[in-house]
Design a protein around this nucleic acid. Structure first.
Ligand SMILES: [Zn+2]
Ligand SMILES: [Zn+2]
Ligand SMILES: [Zn+2]
Ligand SMILES: [Zn+2]
Lengths: 151, 151
DNA sequence: CTTGCCTCTACAGCCGCTGTAGAGAGTAAT
DNA sequence: ATTACTCTCTACAGCGGCTGTAGAGGCAAG
């Protein structure tokens, strides 16, 4: 009796990626077409686990699928200069930082509008006032006018 | 000659929301059906500008459409207690903070893997090494093992 | 009248999956 | 061998929040 073949479910649990997602990755050619058993079930090996884990880690870090595709391509050219790999990573870092800045601004504004509200009727809710008009929130954060209603 | 009616393009520029997006908001009943001119063009008024600006500001702050729907409903009940408004805002703040934490972890790991790379061949690139195995990055950030390859 | 932009509808596509339906395959216990 | 249960298969629709396209018609200035 041979070693039991690795089916998609096994690969799924080993790499921490859902079965449907694996099939999706295959459909977009991010994972290669695996061998099939006689009955048509997908059969994987250790390299599949590695590749899928790589993809998963990159996705966890927010790399878009297209970048991952490029990274995998580069991985198969070990003698090349790694500058292009690093460039992809830096691009991703820039992207993350951009989103981070956005979110920090959102957090600040949300915090202010919530802190300003002392309860009461919807009519006097500062949250709605801020949403209706950004000027109702002091300390401008995402553009437009600023400081018109100080005090 | 009457005042010129506000068509969708005018509303678009006044509220800073694309024409197609306005039509989309109408299709999902976030914006009400506007009046139409004889030839069938959408005609808006000042309340449309206000409502659309409100929506835009809330979207800028990351509120999901469903929350905005709820906020608009609440806005039309000015005598009610604003607790439910504030709850929606706090939920959104929690959401933003969650994403912020995620992104901070991503930033840290990306920064580390990029900083560690001193150039050279793809084969020795720390970026790819980290992506291949999270353990290759010290200071664990999103789960699994830590500190196995110190020094 | 022509030019050129604006508006209309209806529908497909984006990303990165997730869920569904309906069928067949594999495994374990009775 | 039968039942019961899980796993796997394909194909396709749906999520959120838009964006883009095609092909048609409206409208104001030169
Ligand atoms: Zn309030
Ligand atoms: Zn604002
Ligand atoms: Zn490198
Ligand atoms: Zn990691």
């Amino acid at each position: 009796m041979e070693l039991k073949a690795m089916t998609i479910g096994k690969l799924s649990s080993r790499a921490g990626v859902k079965v449907t997602t694996i099939r999706y990755y295959e459909s977009i050619d991010l994972m290669p077409q695996p061998h099939r058993s006689e009955s048509g079930q997908r059969i994987y090996d250790e390299t599949s686990v590695e590749r899928l884990s790589f993809i998963r880690h990159a996705r966890d870090l927010g790399f878009p699928v297209e970048s991952i595709r490029d990274l995998i391509d580069l991985q198969s050219k070990p003698d090349q200069d790694c500058a292009s790999v690093d460039a992809i990573a830096r691009r991703q870092l820039a992207n993350v930082r951009y989103r981070l800045n956005q979110l920090e601004a959102l957090e600040a504004e949300l915090k202010r509008m919530i802190a300003a509200c002392e309860g009461g009727s919807v009519e006097n809710c500062t949250v709605l006032a801020c949403l209706s008009d950004h000027n109702n929130c002091r300390e401008d954060e995402h553009g437009r006018l600023n400081g018109l209603l100080e005090g």
